[in-house]
Design a protein around this nucleic acid. Structure first.
Length: 883
RNA sequence: GGGCAGUUAGCUCAGCUGGAAGAGCAUUUCCCUUACAAGGAAGAGGUCGCAGGUUCAAAUCCUGCACUGCCCACCA
């Protein structure tokens, strides 16, 4: 074995092994408990970023842990066609060639997309493999493959036939850059500096006017009312009066509406139902006319020729100028407000009227809320439930159609006449082009040109991966649905999580998963979100190459407190790599020493204190770690393992084992090595979900190539017998003595090469036995050449004093001792002990404490007091002795 | 405007069913001791955001405030 853990070679070996052996393939099996997860389908445009790495690492940890627990685990991989995002990427590529998608035409463009998908779509999958993800690769799914496409059509048709999907001209979010409508959650808001313009609207029948404040002067031309709050005394008399719209002289009414905030601006608001969501609502309530003045290209329409065809920006400038010139502009204030941006291209979003397909979500969202409230879906951490429910409760209908080319074409067919003109017959939704119109018996149809929101297919994912589209009642679907847990970041709770639940309840009559594990977002070391534009992206691939995949996984796991964002930097990967190396070297030590001892003891009868201790400590760690894995506290699990292995197993147990490993008695050596291996193997199992590569490598060496670390039975996982017998307490006594001697050695600058004689004055009978029985531990770890026990040993000359755990220990330091130093050290010790005495005495004198504190608590304090007193006494004696 | 998190050592974070402040990294000292210098032993470094309250006892529970971050909102 090499001295340093060589992650590259070893990882490559097991990566291949798991895939070739189909270690993570699963078949439905009624005799086994299923445990199902599916990967959030990764966009084919993407390469793996830290967020993915975190997300899939956590899932892999869960799946590997459940596999250890002998569930029939299945984790389904997949990719997403990614709708607008993907189309944009290819459009950009075309742009570099100086072409647009229109130059190619729809069919050619889609061909290009397909071709591009075949070329790059698998990079992310290769990276998942590199990470070691225990996915069932035979089940790889793509949102636009045949089975998934069938699911999309089926779902659409069902909803359509139920009357839940309807077409209507509504106010939608329009991205003019992407040239498509977007749903409400696809709009991101950003604060932007702008102005608030105060504009006079003169009353028709007198010289008075009402002033409105607006950030959108260009939409004046589409105003169909001015609204005030019904309780606003200032305007009470004006309600119902007519004002003339500046610049065009069109007459509109002053109305009242409760949404108007009296304190904002002037308390009067211009109402443009065609281009503002709030205004649209007001318009509906007051039956206002809707005048569209901006088209989908962002150009002015239905306006005087002067403004016709101007862009929004141009129109704004011109209109402000004209208002000013004609005296309608009262004042202009600086103003910051949030502006909607496209979540895919960051272009400004316009609210405008457009005919689109919508899904009525009222009933579905209600059912999803119920499922959250009665616990059929639980959130980890729980704090996400509230915003989730709130969102569902206020959900508006989902705009499903997108005016892009890449995606699932909406399966709606319109009856057309010979000339291709749509007839008045009702459109139908169907899998294939209908042969005859049920209404007019016509035989000509055209399909809707639009495609579905990419999230529509994502919402069906938990069902579609089990071929719901092909057969709603197939075995896999029955066995593996619903999944057990969905792990995802909080950025797609609404876009994805909530919709899967709604569709699951709608089509499967059951939630798609019972647990939703929300993890945080990976940020850079300055707390900034990683993004290409900021240039602070840390590529997981680079980290894997540099530090090893296990190191990447461990660092991410260790930082992944549920629901909390994490800052991660190079140092954390380095620390994780060091941990991997520690595991490697401890194992190496054990393996090297095991070579000449033949078969290990399977049934050890005699345990030393340290043996019992490490077994008990392991059992405690294992139970905590298992509970942590179960409750998605992966960070805590990682830390527990780290702490156990490094500080308990390596620093104490392995060190103590060396006494016996060097023993001339082969049986002694064999026995301790058997325990070392035993605990090591169990630890490897425990860590294998997080660090599968190194765990597998060492496991296979220890087991001479037998089975994978991931598929051993659970029984050995819990086989540990609790040694009881207070071994932890006993070890504490010895550790205390060892540490205190080490401190002294360090303070006195005594070289580790020097072995010291020691005299142990027994002050506490109860601890005498433990120490005498295990004096070799002290000798070995504190470098003591010999120990003489006694009861009334007086302090020898040239000795240093340590009072620890019921012993007064004199270390013979002939020639090494510096009397002044020793005095100073003892003085410091005595000061600390005095503090302890006063602290504990005070507590014990406190009658409330005595009355209310538990008995064991009081005992503890008493013990501390008496130990401190004893210490003072002994140190004082020594000081007197030193003169 | 509403909601949710966070505020503990120079940095990243544990600890929060209330009973002597912890880890990793960085830093100081000693040590290349035949598993590991990607290591070992020891040290220094915190009035646990602020102000109240509950309690014998508060980093931990309660209230308020401040700051930071995120999410939602009908920011004309």
């Amino acid at each position: 074995m090499e001295k340093v853990y060589n992650s590259k070679e070893i990882e490559e070996k097991w990566r291949k092994y798991w895939i070739e052996n189909k270690t993570f393939s699963a078949k439905s099996d009624g005799n086994k408990r299923p445990f199902t997860m599916f990967i959030p389908p990764a966009n084919i445009t993407g390469s793996l970023h830290m967020g993915h790495a975190l997300n899939v690492t956590l899932q892999d940890i869960i799946i590997r842990f459940k596999k250890l627990k002998r569930y029939n685990t299945l984790w389904v991989p997949g990719t997403d066609h990614g709708g607008i995002a993907t189309q944009n990427v290819v459009e950009k590529l075309l742009k570099k060639e100086g072409r647009t998608k229109y130059d190619l035409g729809r069919d050619k463009f889609l061909e290009k997309m397909q071709q591009w998908k075949t070329e790059t779509g698998s990079t992310i999958l290769d990276q998942l493999k590199k990470l070691g993800c225990g996915l069932d690769w035979d089940r790889l799914a793509f949102t636009m493959d045949e089975s998934r496409s069938k699911a999309v059509k089926k779902a659409f048709i069902k909803l359509f036939d139920k009357g839940l999907i309807y077409r209507g001209k509504r106010l939608v979010n329009w991205c003019s850059r992407c040239a498509t409508a977007l749903s409400d959650i696809e709009v991101e808001y950003e604060d932007e500096k702008s102005n608030l313009w105060y504009i006079k609207y003169p009353l028709r029948d007198c010289s008075k006017y009402i002033i409105v404040a607006t950030t959108r002067p260009e939409t004046i031309l589409g105003d169909t009312a001015v609204a005030v709050n019904p309780d606003d005394n200032r305007y009470a008399k004006l309600i119902g009066k007519i004002v003339k719209l500046p610049l065009v002289d069109r007459e509109i009414k002053i109305i009242s509406d409760y949404v108007v905030d009296k304190s904002f601006g002037t308390g009067a608001v211009k109402v443009t139902p065609a281009h503002d969501a709030v205004d649209n609502e007001i318009g509906k309530r007051s039956n206002l006319e809707t005048i569209e003045v901006i088209d989908i290209g962002g150009r002015m329409i239905n306006v005087p020729s002067k403004y016709l065809g101007l862009s929004i920006e141009e129109a704004r400038k011109q209109i402000v100028k004209d208002l000013e010139a004609s005296g309608f502009l009262v004042k202009t204030e600086d103003y910051v407000h949030s502006v909607g941006k496209c979540y895919r291209c960051s272009a400004k979003i316009e609210s405008l009227m457009s005919e689109q397909w919508f899904l009525n979500v009222r009933k579905m969202s209600k059912k999803a809320v119920e499922a959250a409230n009665d616990g059929r879906t639980s959130f980890y951490p729980q704090s996400w439930k509230k915003p989730y429910v709130l969102w569902l409760e206020n959900l508006k209908d989902w705009c499903l159609s997108r005016q892009i080319w890449w995606g699932h074409k909406i399966p709606v067919y319109y009856c057309v006449d010979e000339k291709g003109k749509r007839t008045d017959c009702k459109p139908v939704a169907s899998f294939d082009r209908p042969s005859v119109c049920s209404c007019c018996k016509g035989r000509n149809f055209v399909q809707d040109e639009d495609v579905l929101d990419t999230w529509f297919s994502s919402a069906l994912w938990p069902m579609s991966i089990f071929d719901w589209g092909e057969d709603e009642n197939n075995e896999d679907l029955r066995y593996f649905y619903p999944a057990s847990v969905l792990a995802t970041g909080h950025e797609i709770i609404y876009l994805w999580v909530a919709r899967m639940v709604q569709f699951g309840l709608e089509f499967m009559k059951d939630v798609p998963y019972s647990d939703v594990f929300i993890h945080g977002i990976v940020k850079d070391k300055n707390g900034k979100k990683m993004s290409k534009s900021l240039g602070n992206v840390v590529n997981p691939g680079d980290i894997m190459d540099k530090y090893g995949t296990d190191a990447l996984r461990f660092a991410l796991a260790q930082a992944a407190a549920p629901g909390r964002d994490m800052q991660i930097s190079e140092e954390s990967f380095l620390a994780a790599r060091n941990f991997a190396n520690k595991i490697w070297n401890a194992s190496r030590f054990i393996i090297i020493n095991s070579q000449d001892i033949g078969e290990l003891d399977k049934n050890i009868q005699t345990f030393e204190l340290a043996d019992e201790w490490i077994i008990v400590e392991f059992a405690a760690t294992a139970s905590k770690v298992k509970a942590d894995y179960e409750s998605y506290n992966i960070d805590s699990a990682a830390r527990e393992i780290y702490d156990f292995f490094w500080t308990k197993y390596c620093d104490w147990y392995v060190e103590l084992s060396k006494i016996r490993i060097m023993s001339a008695d082969l049986n002694v050596k064999k026995r301790v090595l058997s325990i070392l291996v035993y605990v090591l193997k169990l630890t490897l199992q425990l860590v294998s979900p997080v660090m599968p590569f190194i765990a597998e490598e060492i496991w296979q060496i220890l087991n001479k190539g037998e089975k994978s670390v991931g598929i051993i039975s659970e029984s050995s996982f819990t086989e540990i017998k609790d040694g009881n017998s207070g071994s932890v307490e006993k070890m504490k006594v010895l550790q205390d003595i060892i540490v205190k001697i080490r401190i002294l050695r360090s303070e006195m600058n005594i070289s580790p090469a020097v072995w010291i004689e020691a005299l142990f004055n027994i002050l506490n009978e109860r601890k005498e036995k433990v120490v005498k029985e295990n004096e070799s531990y002290i000798k070995q770890l504190a470098k003591i050449s010999s120990i003489r026990f006694g009861r009334n040993i007086t302090r020898p000359k040239n000795s240093a004093l340590v009072v620890a755990s019921g012993f007064e220990i004199f270390l013979l330091l002939e020639g090494l001792i510096d009397i002044d130093k020793e005095k100073a050290r003892l003085a410091k010790e005595i000061a600390l002990a005095k503090q302890e005495v006063s602290r504990t005495t005070l507590r014990l004198q406190n009658e409330y404490f005595i009355k209310r504190a538990g008995e064991s608590e009081i005992e503890k304090i008493k013990l501390r007091l008496s130990e401190a007193k004893l210490k003072i006494e002994k140190i004082n004696e020594s000081l007197k002795f030193l003169g």
